[in-house]
């Protein structure tokens, strides 16, 4: 393959371009100055202390967790049965139904967000948190379908018939054979969906209000007015949170299964 010097130099330049802004944010969060400076001027944790005193950020963090858990439960509750149903094929309209359940991935999130916003206004809905949760479920069901669908494909083809011919009923087969065998892919899908929900911005921004504002939207509305180092501090916390999550997942499952599971790679 090409091992030319030039390619190598450009490649490292691109890596620096990718990482530089993030390093600036992390470094700048420790500055003593009133604006983000890099390299930081002095060393201080005062912006982290200020962050701890912000109740609104803490409330948003809690809301993000609640939304994440609720959306994950919803997406798993809808997606796992859907994946099982679609695996009991072939039947008429299966391809269409599968494409239909997968469609939220293809539709631009910004449009789905707007459509839901207008829909909620038309039906005069006043359930701030639930509205966001529903938006998150809509766009994450396809991910469950993907990971669990891939898990189901790996099952021995006649395992359910085998269980039944040995005398297990349909429900017993589902609980004792099918579900335990797809448990790993359900778990991977669950984690994946929680991360997507916790990170979600585009849907959330349309559905957020003063009554329900997940953390990324809180940061967004804050930096519309100020870009002081406190945002660098909360960003650093979020960056560390993401990396920590990935390290834990890597230790527990191996990254290939978390990110490669069912994505067709």
């Amino acid at each position: 393959m090409i091992e030319s010097r030039i390619v190598s130099v450009i490649a490292w330049g691109v890596v620096v371009f990718l990482m530089a802004p993030l390093i600036v944010v992390i470094g700048g969060s420790f500055t003593e100055s009133a604006y983000v400076a890099f390299p930081p001027q002095g060393f201080s944790l005062k912006w982290y202390v200020q962050l701890l005193e912000r109740k609104d950020f803490f409330t948003s963090f809690k809301e993000s967790l609640v939304i994440g858990v609720a959306a994950t439960l919803g997406a798993v509750g809808l997606g796992v049965p859907a994946a099982i149903g679609l695996s009991r094929g072939p039947f008429w309209g299966r391809g269409f139904l599968k494409a239909f359940v997968m469609s939220p991935i293809v539709l631009p999130t910004v449009i789905t967000g707007i459509a839901l916003l207008q829909f909620y206004r038309m039906i005069d809905s006043a359930l701030p948190l639930t509205q966001i949760v529903i938006g998150h479920i809509v766009i994450t069901v396809p991910y469950i379908l993907r990971t669990v669908g891939a898990g189901l494909q790996l099952l021995p083809p006649n395992i359910e018939e085998a269980a039944e011919s040995l005398g297990a009923g349909r429900i017993r087969t589902l609980l004792k054979v099918t579900l335990p065998s797809i448990a790993p892919s359900v778990l991977v899908g669950t984690i994946f969906v929680f991360i997507i929900s916790f990170d979600q911005v585009t849907i959330s921004i349309f559905l957020s209000s003063a009554d329900a504002m997940p953390l990324p939207i809180r940061i967004y509305s804050y930096i519309e007015f100020a870009i002081d180092p406190m945002v660098a501090a909360v960003s650093t916390v979020l960056i560390l949170f993401s990396y920590l999550l990935v390290v834990v997942l890597e230790r527990a499952f191996g990254l290939d299964r978390v990110f490669g599971g069912g994505t067709g790679r």
Binding site: A11, V36, Y220, F259
Partner: peptide, 30 residues
């Protein structure tokens, strides 16, 4: 190593990644 470096920005929230550019390019930016 390179794959980890390429993947890591994907783990970071979109708002944070955009904020990083405000820090670099802003009127009081770097």
């Amino acid at each position: 190593l390179l794959m980890a470096l390429v993947l890591s920005p994907l783990l970071i929230n979109l708002v944070v990644r955009t904020y990083a550019w405000l820090v670099v390019l802003g009127d009081k930016g770097l």
